[in-house]
Design a protein around this nucleic acid. Sequence first.
DNA 1: AGGTCAACTGAATCCTCTC
DNA 2: CGAGAGGATTCAGTTGACC
Lengths: 367, 367
Amino acid sequence: MTKTDPRKAPLALPLNQIIAGDCIEEMNRLPEASIDLIFADPPYNLQLRGELHRPDNSRVDAVDDAWDQFGSFGHYDSFTHDWLAAARRILKPNGAIWVIGSYHNVFRLGAELQNQGYWILNDVVWRKSNPMPNFRGKRLTNAHETLIWASKSEGAKYTFNYEALKALNEGVQMRSDWVLPICTGGERLKDEAGDKAHPTQKPEALLHRIILGTTNPGDVVLDPFFGTGTTGAVAKMLGRDYIGIEREEAYREAASKRLEKVRKFDREALEITGSKRAEPRVPFGQLVERGMLRPGEELYSVGNRFKAKVRADGTLVGNDVKGSIHQVGAHLEGAPSCNGWTYWHFKRDGKMVPIDLLRQQIRAEMH
Amino acid sequence: MTKTDPRKAPLALPLNQIIAGDCIEEMNRLPEASIDLIFADPPYNLQLRGELHRPDNSRVDAVDDAWDQFGSFGHYDSFTHDWLAAARRILKPNGAIWVIGSYHNVFRLGAELQNQGYWILNDVVWRKSNPMPNFRGKRLTNAHETLIWASKSEGAKYTFNYEALKALNEGVQMRSDWVLPICTGGERLKDEAGDKAHPTQKPEALLHRIILGTTNPGDVVLDPFFGTGTTGAVAKMLGRDYIGIEREEAYREAASKRLEKVRKFDREALEITGSKRAEPRVPFGQLVERGMLRPGEELYSVGNRFKAKVRADGTLVGNDVKGSIHQVGAHLEGAPSCNGWTYWHFKRDGKMVPIDLLRQQIRAEMH
DNA sequence: AGGTCAACTGAATCCTCTC
DNA sequence: CGAGAGGATTCAGTTGACC
């Protein structure tokens, strides 16, 4: 039996650091089921005609046999398989992944995600407001990139801050097409020569939406193709921990400098619009126990079409039907379900008031 | 030696007809290298689970037809392989194909296109102006579908009417994202009972753009999943020949009736995309995402009487009130409503600037 | 005739906890 | 594991009844 190679030993989570190395090897050294979210912007230029390189930078011999005329896709698929498998191992059961790509590679990415058991939640289109035109007029302006959001497996309880994204979209449900400008101007990192530090730096706005919408403060966000660290920068701003993996020293250095300057937003600013689902459950019976409603008192349906009587045990009776506020409401409406809290009203000073108001009073006391 | 089965004999091109049968078998009977353009809207393999109800308790009419059921990704891939191979054989060397799908199937489609040697020219996003919302608030509104445009092979001289599409786009180069409404109203075909004749009828505007942009008059356009014949109808209007293949008799009949009524070169068809041009809505959250305003930054009311803090999700908090820029403004003023865009100001270089200025910057970029 | 409002609809992988 | 219950959740647009 050989000794364990210390270089292969699993690491404790190296939070808020940039790991130097190949992302597959480095992910394999991280503890399993430890990451909340992965954002990955993998290279997509591996299948260009001519030279082909493996992830470890060694050159692949050109394949010109007829039986393997699409061998370049084979190599790309194998690379994609390996890093997605490594990523899946380190994801928590309720973790999720975002990948981004263009038509050159995104179909391979999406198919491999599905093959490995990831469960696609949405594909999202980043619609660029200022794309590069198609100079030769031979095709359509390539004005978008595609992101795929997937949970680790079907049925997993992924994080989705629905109300926060709805608020971000001025009160309308967030859609799967996001209009955002490409990364230019002061946000674009430059090297000493004044050239762009990274060829495909993503805008912070894109990561802001992703991290705000699909993680909670304190979550761990890993980016296996860290580049100049947009994922880390936004994670830090938003009070999440990040882990970056990057092979190229120049990118790591640029990212490192960038991250030092980033400040976390203050706590109040990080609070997001909350969800009703997260509110504590209040049994209807409590309203009766506390005397907010009297046994025998009558409740009236939305639209005043039905009446029901409150009973001492917190059930209702109306039209010979007995049951919870939800059951009686559903039965009277002939509906598959009913939210009794908003359906039933009581009278106060001649006005109809929804019983949900009483629940809100109880919840306010609980804080 | 056996006699040739006449049912298997290659057909001469059955122009402007609807062929009854399985599309793989029927394409295999057509002469090779005879088709200019294929438009294909294959089953999406939606894999829906239970029933879904809207918040008003009405039931969503799901696409649960037998033709959309596949046992596994393996079965779906095998089906995809077979019809794409049959399609490629009958394409002229300079012919092209369009396929449409959603995240359920489009990654399988795209990967298989590449595997067979098709050469992807663009992926195009159909952004629906009126998609069905996500009723349970568990994901993003699925507001788009993806099309892939590919030539038969790399280096082929595909047809692209650059100027026509540019004209259709008000003089600006056509982009890879197309905003079009879904097919409703008078365009949507109904059966005798008044129900929709086909669950997934595509809008004519979509086919108009495709056929106008990537074929010439007199070209042959084939649709292996003809359905109720949108492809044929638009091809006929635009003076192209069509061939439809459809298994279901009810769809063939509906398509047949429809096609009889279609007149070639209907000028009105050219006006389909004309739409009201309102100023695009810009959610306040975008100013935060884009870093134009920082979470935690303070905004000042008109007249400087009130302050409020920006939060990461694009809401404000001031005087213990949380909400949109409009809501918080209205509350502070004790007014029924408030235009937050002109009400709130931020400080730059000691001066007060209305946030509407930032909105104008974003709108300028969108043009 | 014109305006108002309620009802209806669209390719959808659409809940969560307790017993 | 399944069954049952609580209760949260929608946008743009068309159609048709009714004033």
